[in-house]
Design a protein around this nucleic acid. Structure first.
Lengths: 164, 164
DNA sequence: CTGAAACGGGACCAATCCGGTCCCAATTGG
DNA sequence: CCAATTGGGACCGGATTGGTCCCGTTTCAG
């Protein structure tokens, strides 16, 4: 269903928590705060650190903090940190050499257009916006294609990520 | 890498081919025309028919045609036909009941905003636009975040979809 | 100087999902 | 009546993902 990874979902939850905390905290603290299992927190954090979204301090009294202000962390950054470059098809992996079938391939870069559109949409929403407790009026106000615009969770037990 | 399914990729190729053909053709003909294996064509077609994007005729001299003009078939339609509703997280599956954790869940509908943005991006590009042989100037002209904006294919053999 | 606390970088396995193939019933035209 | 075609599944092997664990490295506290 055109889903992001579960780990990516976790990443957003963890980043949100860190954005609200605003100070260095150990992985187990973040885990306790969010309900995400400790090993999973560790795994996600590794990816976030590698991507430069989070800064880590080792040793006793170490932990994690956001590496930059929440305003400059977009949803696209989080997804790319966990899942690599945003490319809907294998055709458009960002690289330097050109497709040897260019001019023959019927897609002719049209997917690239789609990718650009999606990436743009994912760059337009930042962690700071998500961290704002009341959902911003701009989103509650907009007509929303889904009637009502409410969101639900199919399985109450086996909750999964995206909630504390 | 935030990918669509391979079958969805095939679907776009097949739909493109049907858009150019403009007449009823059997699955094996479409397969021969696109290079997609016959059983896979059949499988994809089933989904496209169920979604109402393609009209089928059974019996001898039967086959498939687009059910509506290519201008009214968006990328979002194709993806939803193969992968179900576009929802980046399990939280926002379109349904009528509300999330019982609303007000407590830290995401509080922010994912819905992301979903809406993505869906909007995917609705803005139609099959007709993709079928136009020369890539539209609007796309070649735009600066493109990736330098050059060329697309490539990593593995020449084992080509996969998105090419004839 | 020593030890505990914490991160870093993997290896590893189970479970799930996906791609691809095949079979048979239903339908239709000749 | 026969041949051609789609419809709806079942089915399986391989790839991906989610989740856990282990051990080395770094740092602070005492």
């Amino acid at each position: 269903m055109f889903r992001i990874n579960k780990l990516t979902d976790y990443a957003v939850v963890l980043l949100l928590d860190m954005a609200r905390a605003g100070q260095v905290r150990a992985a187990h603290q973040i885990a306790a705060d969010t309900g995400v299992p400790v090993p999973t927190v560790a795994k996600v954090m590794k990816a976030l650190v590698r991507a430069g979204l989070v800064r880590s301090t080792r040793g006793s009294s170490g932990g994690y903090v956001l590496a930059r202000p929440a305003e400059s962390i977009a949803v696209a950054d989080m997804i790319e940190a966990l899942e690599g470059p945003i490319a809907l098809t294998a055709c458009v992996l960002d690289a330097d050499d050109t497709c040897e079938r260019e001019g023959f391939c019927p897609m002719s870069g049209h997917w690239n257009r789609v990718n650009t559109a999606v990436r743009k949409a994912l760059t337009g929403i930042t962690l700071a916006e998500m961290a704002a407790r009341p959902a911003p009026a701009s989103w509650r106000a907009q007509p929303a294609t889904d009637p009502g615009g409410v969101f639900r969770r199919p399985a109450p037990a086996d909750s999964g990520p995206a909630l504390a």
